[in-house]
Structure formats: structure tokens, C-alpha cells
């Protein structure tokens, strides 16, 4: 027999309580505003890069502006993606499936960020060393 009442079991589980719903919404708002600026900047940068030979790509992303804009767009963008995917996961999945999906989404997002930062850092730093 369960002594805990359904009301007691539900207490504190709402998005606005000691949970992280408010923080989540604010994170989405901040990253959205950042991406309004970063998206056009990134498109102009990447539009000039696609079509270059390999040497051209390496030299292009060794410049500060293309490297920083691309890094910021991909980091903030994938962070926004991870947080946004969480909304869909919470809508459609429960229990173990939900936990697995959240963990997979976080790991995927940070793996893409790591790969992008690694590539950009190699290109940006190699030019200084050489």
C-alpha cells in the first residue's frame, strides 16, 4: 500500500518549481538572440569557403573573423539544438527511453562541438606556428 498521496507525489515536479524549466526557457531565449546575429554572419563566411581547394580552406579559416564566427555559430547552435531537442524528448518520451534520449542528445551535441572546435583550432593555430 502506498501511503503517499498522488498530490504529494506530484509536488515539485512542475517546470516552474525547483526544477529547471525557467532556466531552460531563458537559455533558449539567450541562444536564440545570439543566433539571430550569428546566422547571417556564418552564412556569409561559409558561402565564401565552399568551393575553395584544401589549401584555400586552411588559409581562409586561419583568419580570425571566419574562425571565430564559425566556432561561435556551431557552439551556440549545437547548444541550442541540445536544449531544443530536450523539449521534444519531454513531449514524446517517458521513463528509461526519455533518459536515454536526453543522454544521447547531449553526447551527440558536444561531440559535434568538439569536432568543429578541433578542426578550427588546428587551422587557426597552424598558421601562427608556420
Amino acid at each position: 500500500m502506498r501511503y503517499i498521496t498522488p498530490r504529494k507525489a506530484a509536488m515539485g515536479l512542475g517546470a516552474a518549481g525547483p526544477s529547471t524549466g525557467t532556466q531552460h526557457h531563458w537559455t533558449m531565449t539567450v541562444t536564440s538572440v545570439a543566433l539571430v546575429v550569428l546566422t547571417p554572419a556564418f552564412l556569409l563566411v561559409i558561402g565564401r569557403a565552399i568551393g575553395l581547394p584544401r589549401e584555400g580552406v586552411l588559409v581562409y579559416f586561419s583568419q580570425p573573423y571566419p574562425a571565430i564566427v564559425t566556432a561561435l555559430f556551431l557552439i551556440v547552435g549545437m547548444y541550442h539544438f541540445v536544449k531544443g531537442t530536450r523539449i521534444m524528448i519531454d513531449d514524446y518520451l517517458d521513463h528509461t527511453e526519455r533518459k536515454v534520449a536526453i543522454i544521447f542528445s547531449e553526447m551527440f551535441g558536444w561531440a559535434v562541438i568538439a569536432a568543429a572546435v578541433y578542426a578550427l583550432a588546428r587551422m587557426a593555430l597552424s598558421a601562427v606556428i608556420v
Partner: peptide, 26 residues
């Protein structure tokens, strides 16, 4: 919001390939 990650993945692969070597980039 979810679908555009396909393009992001393609571009990040392309960036990593550029530092990985000639064959990877090709």
C-alpha cells in the same frame, strides 16, 4: 530545427576532413 543538423554534420565533417588530409578532404 532538428532537420538542419544534417547540413551542420556535413559541414563539420568537411572542416575536420580539411585538417585530416588530402584524401579525406577530397
Amino acid at each position: 530545427g532538428h532537420a538542419m543538423v544534417a547540413g551542420i554534420l556535413l559541414l563539420v565533417w568537411w572542416l575536420v576532413a580539411a585538417v585530416a588530409g588530402d584524401r579525406a578532404f577530397a
